[in-house]
Amino acid sequence: MEICDYFSFDSDHPSLSGHFPGDPVVPGSLLLEKVLHALESLTADRQAHFVVVSRVKFIGFVRPEQEVEVRFVWTEMSGRWRFECSCDGEKKVEGELELSTERHSELTL
C-alpha cells in the first residue's frame, strides 16, 4: 500500500528566523513532525497514538514555501511504513516509522 500527502512551511514560521538568518532552512524536527502528522491523518487505524521513528536520514535542505511531497509505503515484512520526502522530484528525507498503540518508554540510539 502506498499513500502520499503534501505540505509546506510559511516563510514567516517562527523557527525559520534563527535557522539560519539570511538563508532559512526548515529544521529537521519540523519536517519530521509534519511527516508524523501526515501518517497519522492518512492511516485508517485511529487506535495508534504513538509513532516510533525507526530510522531517518536527512539528505537535502527544504526551504520555506517549497512544496514537500511525502510518500509512505507499507512494508509487510517489517511492519513499518517507509517514507520519503521530496521537493520538485529531489529526495530530501527518508526513513521508517512504526505506529503503535503503546507508549515506548526507552530510547534506543
Rank of each mutant, 00 (worst) to 15 (best):
P21G: 01
S29P: 01
G18D: 10
K34L: 11
Q47N: 10
C85E: 01
Q47W: 06
S86G: 07
G95K: 07
V25C: 06
P24C: 06
P21T: 03
V53D: 02
L99F: 03
S15Q: 14
S54I: 14
E76H: 08
S78C: 06
E106L: 15
E106D: 14
E2S: 09
M1F: 09
E2W: 07
G95H: 06
D10G: 08
F50E: 13
S100T: 04
E98T: 07
R71M: 11
V93D: 00
H37F: 11
V35H: 01
P27R: 08
L42N: 01
L97H: 00
V53Y: 04
L97W: 02
V52F: 13
H13F: 06
H104R: 10
E98C: 06
Y6E: 03
E94C: 09
S105A: 14
L42F: 04
L36D: 09
D12R: 10
L16H: 05
A38H: 00
D10T: 09
D45E: 07
F58W: 02
F83A: 01
H19W: 00
S29A: 15
K91E: 06
H104Y: 07
L107T: 09
R46D: 10
E98M: 15
E84A: 12
V35N: 00
V56W: 05
S105E: 13
R80C: 13
I3H: 02
L16P: 03
L36A: 09
M77H: 15
V35F: 02
H49R: 15
E69W: 05
C85D: 03
S29G: 11
D5M: 04
A44G: 13
T43C: 02
F20I: 12
V25L: 13
S8E: 10
V35Q: 04
E65T: 13
F83Q: 02
E106N: 10
A38L: 00
V26K: 04
L36G: 05
I59V: 15
E102G: 13
R103K: 15
T108A: 11
L109E: 11
V53P: 00
D5S: 03
F50D: 08
G18K: 12
S15C: 13
V73W: 06
Q47E: 14
F58G: 03
F7L: 05
G79K: 05
F20Y: 08
V35Y: 02
